[in-house]
Structures are given as structure tokens and as C-alpha cells.
């Protein structure tokens, strides 16, 4: 367990830029595309996911020696689903507007690859403190990516930003950007921009590192 200070800071910061779950590792595409019609929704979804990730990472890391390897996938799923149910209650009670705008995608956090991927790759192998740092870093990276997506789509698509009207743009919003097609387009552009800025070769495939079935997937031939 990494108890000295430097590695913990590294766990915390790696998720924000170097291993950003959405823009670099390409995980959790569904919520990234679905809820980012507004910047505020992006932040909400990001923070909710961070909460679930933090909770599940801590519990899974605490139970990592108790859960038998063979049933780890169902065990992880139950832990994650419990936290999703919990945050669902909290949101419904305290922030009903966010609860309504996230809708079914709140339930679908359960099957978000990022959470499962961190459980499988990090929390099941590391101590509680390191796992918590990892969860916060990854969650913030996800939140920032969603906020960026949401801002671009909201500014271009509806001429507003966080509810504030932007002159000129609000008279000629490009509706396409808040439609599903605009989501795919914006994400493609952002990933291309990240590649350009970091001078990296763009990824050829989606990140499957978070996929619980990455091993059996090899058999399918196409998904790497």
C-alpha cells in the first residue's frame, strides 16, 4: 500500500490529465454523450459518478481479500448498484431538478465502464487510501471532460452557458449540437484536439481496459 506522500498525489492527479478516463482512455462513452447537452448536467453527472466511484472503490478495496476471485464480477456489480441506488435517493430528495434531467442515465451509472474498470484494475489490488485517491482523481477527470463537452455543446447549440445568455450566439443557436449527432461530433473533435495537443497518435480502438469482459472479448475478434 502506497502510504508515503508522493505516490498518493500521483494517484490523485493521474486521472485528471495523463490518464483522463474519458478523453485518453475512452471509457464511459454513454453518459459522456448522453447528458452533456448542458454544462450544468455535465458537472452533475460527473460529481454523481465521482461519488459512486469513491464509494465503490473504498468498499471494494476494503473487501478485496474477502471476495473470492470467481464471483468478483457479480460482487462488484452489487456494490456499485447499491451506491447508485443510494445516490438516487439523495438526489431525488435534495436536488430533484438534477434527478429529473439525468433520468435513466442515473441508473445506468451502474454499468459505466469507468467505475467497473477502476474496481477491477485498481481497487481490487490496492489499499483503501490509494483507492480513494484514485477514485477522486478519476472522478474529477471525468467531471472536467463532461463539463468541457457540456460547455461546448451548450454554447454552440443553445447560445447559453450555465444559464447565462451569450450575445450574438443566442440569436443563432446551432441546434444540431444539442442533438445526438452533435454529441458524437463534439466528442470526436475533442479527442482529435487532445491528440494534437499531446502529439500522440490517436487511439485506434476504444479503451477496453475497463470492460469486465476484456479477456473473453478477445474471442469476438474485433473488440480489443
Amino acid at each position: 500500500m502506497a502510504e508515503n506522500k508522493t505516490p498518493l498525489v500521483k494517484e490523485l492527479t493521474k486521472g485528471i490529465l495523463k490518464e483522463n478516463p474519458t478523453l485518453v482512455m475512452l471509457l464511459g462513452m454513454c453518459p459522456t454523450l448522453a447528458v452533456t447537452t448542458q454544462a450544468m448536467n455535465g458537472i452533475g453527472m460527473g460529481l454523481v459518478t465521482t461519488f459512486v466511484l469513491l464509494g465503490s472503490n473504498i468498499v471494494i478495496s476494503a473487501l478485496r481479500k474477502v471476495i473470492p476471485d470467481k464471483v468478483r464480477i457479480p460482487a462488484f456489480i452489487v456494490i456499485i448498484a447499491s451506491f447508485v441506488t443510494l445516490i438516487g435517493f439523495l438526489l431525488e430528495g435534495f436536488v430533484p431538478s438534477l434527478y429529473d434531467s439525468l433520468g435513466i442515465y442515473l441508473t445506468l451509472i451502474t454499468v459505466n465502464c469507468i467505475i467497473f474498470g477502476r474496481a477491477e484494475m485498481f481497487a481490487s489490488k490496492n489499499g483503501i487510501v490509494a483507492s480513494a485517491c484514485d477514485a477522486i482523481g478519476m472522478g474529477l477527470g471525468f467531471t472536467m471532460a463532461l463539463f468541457l463537452m457540456g460547455s461546448i455543446r451548450e454554447i454552440i447549440g443553445s447560445g447559453k452557458w450555465m444559464g447565462l445568455e451569450i450575445p450574438v450566439l443566442s440569436n443563432n443557436p446551432m441546434l444540431l449540437f444539442i442533438m445526438p449527432a452533435g454529441g458524437f461530433f463534439t466528442l470526436g473533435m475533442i479527442i482529435a484536439a487532445v491528440n494534437k495537443l499531446t502529439n500522440k497518435k490517436p487511439p485506434q480502438e476504444l479503451g477496453c481496459s475497463g470492460c469486465p469482459h476484456a479477456e473473453s472479448c478477445g474471442k469476438a475478434g474485433d473488440c480489443q
Partner: peptide, 18 residues
Amino acid sequence: ETFKGVPATLIAASIVSV
């Protein structure tokens, strides 16, 4: 070069979605 792989796939998906 910058768009090869996933970015191009996503933009193609956007056109199919249109």
C-alpha cells in the same frame, strides 16, 4: 493523421445519427 481511428469513427457516427 490527427483524426485517424476513434475521432473519425465518432464523426462518422454523428453523420449516421443525422
